[in-house]
Design a binder for these strands. Structure first.
Lengths: 192, 192
DNA sequence: AAAATAGTTGACTGATCGTTCTTAAATAAT
DNA sequence: ATTATTTAAGAACGATCAGTCAACTATTTT
């Protein structure tokens, strides 16, 4: 490589992801990306390919970065751990400073749906990650006696995925924290 | 009015709504609307105003037309009624012939978020409609003894709203009916 | 020091976007 | 029958879109 790049690929990819996350794929123009990364159009194309390819890399980055589920692996009583997870989710989803962007994958699933297979593959994979995180959490809880043995952990995990997505949608329909807390409160009742 | 309109405003508005519903606001071009309604661009502008105004009218039409909650007012055991509601929702959300469009308001909330106040007002209003439908249903169930007196009906209603939205998102991440059914099954447990 | 290589840059492409305008056509009022 | 009024329709508007390319610059290799 003769002349070195003047920007950090990872940083720029994160900045691009931020824009797609906030505005969605269609509303994001190349010009937006240029302005928010400070990188020339041509360099973006040389480095990341076209808009669609760049977006796919942002989806991959999001999947690899989302550490919200780390909370589920922390120590503590299972019910309290789950409550902490929801609390943080609600905090984040409603936080104006964070841009109330929601979940990039959920946003993308809603915007692009089943249009492009290279996208739906990634949406599906992430959704599966989420389910698996909940599944593992619930299995641990069950082994610890915090969840009845007869409970169907797969069902419960999918239920939690649904609640998770539901809360992100709710956060786009209201700024009333109580609404999301009420929903999460009821959802917590499964931990018996 | 001298020369009469050659098209039915209501039919055309429904056709436009269909397109916005399927493709979202940003991905829908005036040309798309022209092709799916058979109405000239100029006539669309004369009749409905610009793209944004037309879209708002589609949101209003959607709100006034969504009769899915009629199921909740039907006769029968409360738990069975709720199950029927979820069954139909899942049927619709996954039905290819229906276009797997999801819920126009949820789609719009995710796409437009809190960008435009004239839109978020409508999103909020519809979301409140949904909550109220569930609330009334749950109150009837409680009076009928199908729901414990001590249950917080407002909380439960908001929980159901969250599940409803969650299922619509889930339907965009997978075609596996079992995933949605599992989530709905767990949600049904609140009816005790 | 010269050549080869790779990244940066500004200008530009054709296509499509939402929107408007002028002209023609159809009906109602006179 | 003529005029007034409203709608329809084709063409065009400037703006913006995603994407490209040749000229230029900085670094590595020879």
């Amino acid at each position: 490589m003769a002349r070195p790049r003047e920007f950090d690929q990872e940083i720029v990819l994160n900045q691009a992801m931020e824009v797609f996350w906030r505005k969605g794929y269609e509303r994001t123009s190349i010009q937006d990306l240029v302005e928010h990364t400070g990188v020339h159009r041509g360099s973006l194309y040389d480095t990341f390919g076209d808009k669609n390819q760049l977006f796919l890399q942002c989806l991959d980055l999001f999947r690899s970065k989302d550490r919200a589920f780390g909370i589920l692996e922390e120590e503590g009583e299972s019910k309290e751990v789950l409550r902490r997870y929801f609390d943080r989710l609600i905090d984040y989803a409603l936080n104006d400073d964070a841009g109330r962007k929601g979940c990039l994958i959920a946003n993308t699933a809603m915007e692009m749906g089943a249009i492009d297979s290279s996208i739906s593959v990634r949406v599906e994979a992430f959704s599966m990650d989420v389910e698996t995180s909940f599944y593992k959490f619930l299995m641990r809880a069950q082994q610890r006696g915090a969840l009845k043995k007869k409970k169907n952990v797969r069902e419960l995990a999918r239920f939690l995925v649904s609640i998770r997505y539901g809360l992100y949608v709710l956060a786009k329909t209201t700024t009333d924290r109580k609404v999301l807390e009420d929903a999460a409160n009821v959802a917590m009742l499964i931990m018996v």
